[in-house]
Amino acid sequence: MSTVSLLIERLQKHFPEQQIEISFGEVTLTLTPQTLKSIANTLHTHPDFAFEALQDVCGVDYLDYGLSEWIAEKATGKGFERAALRDKKINILERQGPRFAVVYHLLSLTHNWRLRIMILLDEPLMVPSVVDIWPSANWFEREAFDLFGILFEDHPDLRRILTDYGFIGHPFRKDFPLSGYVEVRYDATSGKVVYDPVDIVPRTLVPKMIRRDQRYADDDSARGAS
């Protein structure tokens, strides 16, 4: 697409030091928390970019990235449920780098293009808030804080948004169990709602498996070209 190449050209002109990546026809700009504010300002106000709208902000936890729960290369005599390697997963992709990321999806209505900004993060999970640039970031940042525990500096109202009042933990982190830690029920004898430790046993119905699939062998070269 010609608009994508024009966007890349302008990005390279304005931010020659930043890492720009193209995959699946989408442009990703990788930044650090220190550089975010100034670059976001340029992207928003400069007529070369005119990203008026911030469509989405989300957190990502890379803890389990590239880990497989199933030995895909050889046969096993057990069923899925018993043979899923929940505790000793196989590391296939061997990803290096920080555990967390914050991802922003920008949209320019003027130029009709999109841009993804990615910020990789380790402790401290602190990113400057972009609410003063894009007001729509407000709730999306609250959500990322709620679900991943990422703190947004200078956010006007960083409260939890989706989880229950008084919730403990950040449920979308990969080390948070799917069934959670507590369950809620109404206790008739004491006449109130009580929280009990959850009694669901974790189980895997279909294990996660990563296949070294030959179908996508030439994928990296194909993606670079698009």
């Binding site: 990502v60 279909v206 996660k208 296949r211």
Partner: peptide
């Protein structure tokens, strides 16, 4: 309505937003 999908090559999405 946007769907942001990160895949690590597995049979499940790694992250779906």
């Amino acid at each position: 309505f946007g769907v942001y999908l990160i895949s690590d090559g597995a049979n499940k999405p790694y992250r779906l937003k």
